[in-house]
């Protein structure tokens, strides 16, 4: 049965008691979680629609009114790039390096979302085996690559990259690539751009979307995963988000040794 609290939940229109009650129910009601997912997806699609341009010869004037003195209409800004995240990325990577170098766990992590989205796009373009830019490096080819990241039978892993404490697992799917980025630390959700709660099999995640891609951020046992995939490949992005906690720490240690940077 449909529950209109779900839309109110996504829109931040529930009071605290309603929200807690709904979250508790979502944690064990798969059908309700699926409905939340459906509503969230619709909501994001509509919100992602861009402005509509009028025909060049259309004049903004009242019906039958005069048009004297009309100034040129100021175009809408279609680019809502979160440039502030670049600075966050730099700070995050700095502290990650510092943390690994000193052998201590980094306390708080803010995934550099814009950089990760860019890296995902570049890796997807270069797939399967190219070094895509100067910041991420490709892991040497090994036979058992499928055992390294979250196991998803319908999504073969095609490459692993690393940059300063962030490991990227790149998967291929019929509808486009999906990346799972992994970094250690606890999620500083308050420093993220605007996100929405989203249930996954691993627990409540954070969700955001840009014009073309979905981003799902999950913290599990001191590890932060950022899943990036095309908006048109939603099912596979969700599959990856559900699977990320399966990553084994020993595998990560193995990857680090392969990269030869952290041991």
């Amino acid at each position: 049965m449909s529950d209109d609290r779900l839309s109110a939940f996504l829109d931040g229109e529930l009071d605290d008691a309603e929200q807690r009650a709904l979250e508790a129910r979502l944690s064990h009601d798969g059908a309700l979680a699926a409905e939340l997912e459906a509503v969230r997806h619709s909501r994001q699609l509509v919100r992602g629609l861009g402005p509509v341009e009028p025909p060049a010869d259309f004049v903004f004037a009242p019906s039958g009114g005069a048009t004297d003195g009309l100034a040129e209409v100021v175009p809408l800004d279609r680019h809502r790039r979160r440039r502030g995240l670049l600075a966050v990325a730099a700070v995050t990577i700095f502290f990650l390096v510092l943390g690994f170098a000193s052998g201590t766990r980094v306390a708080d992590v803010v995934p550099p979302v814009d950089d990760l989205v860019d890296q995902h796009a570049a890796a997807a373009e270069a797939m399967p085996d190219a070094v895509v830019d100067g910041s991420f490096e490709l892991m040497p080819e090994v036979e058992d690559i499928d055992d390294m990241g979250p196991a998803m039978p319908e999504m073969p892993m095609v490459a692993v990259y690393q940059a300063d404490g962030i490991i990227q697992f790149l998967y291929d799917t019929d509808h486009g690539p999906v990346s799972v980025f992994r970094q250690e630390g606890t999620l500083d959700a308050g420093s993220l751009p605007s996100t929405e709660p989203m249930p996954t099999e691993a627990g409540m995640a954070r969700y955001l979307v840009d014009a073309e891609r979905e981003i799902i951020i999950i913290e599990r046992d001191g590890v932060v995963f950022t899943v990036v995939g095309d908006l048109t490949n939603h099912d596979m992005v969700m599959t990856a988000a559900d699977a990320v906690p399966a990553t084994d720490r020993s595998v990560i240690e193995q990857i680090r040794r392969w990269f030869g940077q952290l041991t």
Partner: peptide, 18 residues
């Protein structure tokens, strides 16, 4: 209303088109 047309015209157009 001229300011509204100039500064909010495209916003109005988008809402109306949707």
């Amino acid at each position: 209303w001229e300011q509204v047309a100039r500064d909010h015209g495209r916003f109005l157009y988008t809402v109306a088109y949707r």
